[in-house]
């Protein structure tokens, strides 16, 4: 537990990256929800290979979540503080009665 320590540059990078990707997804999700709420008729428009906007946007949101998750997983940096904590935990497994 190291909330009082200043975070490592790696952790700061990860946090900012996470927030950025979160905002990207939030914008897309909000778009979907707002179209549904205030222009539901638009969801019937056929947009791709005979499929309407509701299905394409809905499947797109699911697929895009995975794409963003993979980007995040690839770009995230290893926090050195974690290695120390993991080693300490391995050395003292704690309550194992």
């Amino acid at each position: 537990m190291n909330t009082s320590e200043s975070p490592s540059p790696q952790r700061r990078f990860n946090t900012r990256l996470g927030l950025f990707l979160f905002l990207v997804y939030l914008a897309l999700y909000s778009g979907f929800v707002l179209i549904n709420a205030f222009a539901a008729d638009k969801m019937e428009i056929i947009v791709l290979v005979g499929l309407n906007l509701a299905i394409v946007y809905g499947f797109g949101l699911i697929a895009f979540a995975l794409v963003l998750a993979l980007i995040y997983g690839m770009l995230c940096q290893k926090d050195p503080a974690e290695d120390i904590a993991t080693e300490e935990a391995a050395a003292a497994p704690g309550d194992s009665k």
């Binding site: 190291n2 946090t15 979160f22 979907f32």
Partner: peptide, 22 residues
């Protein structure tokens, strides 16, 4: 389905690491 999955974005990008750390 869409809302349930979108929630995982909050879990991954905002909550996952701090939860484990804290």
């Amino acid at each position: 389905s869409i809302g349930f999955l979108a929630g995982w974005i909050v879990a991954l990008f905002v909550i996952a690491e701090p939860m484990k750390r804290l």
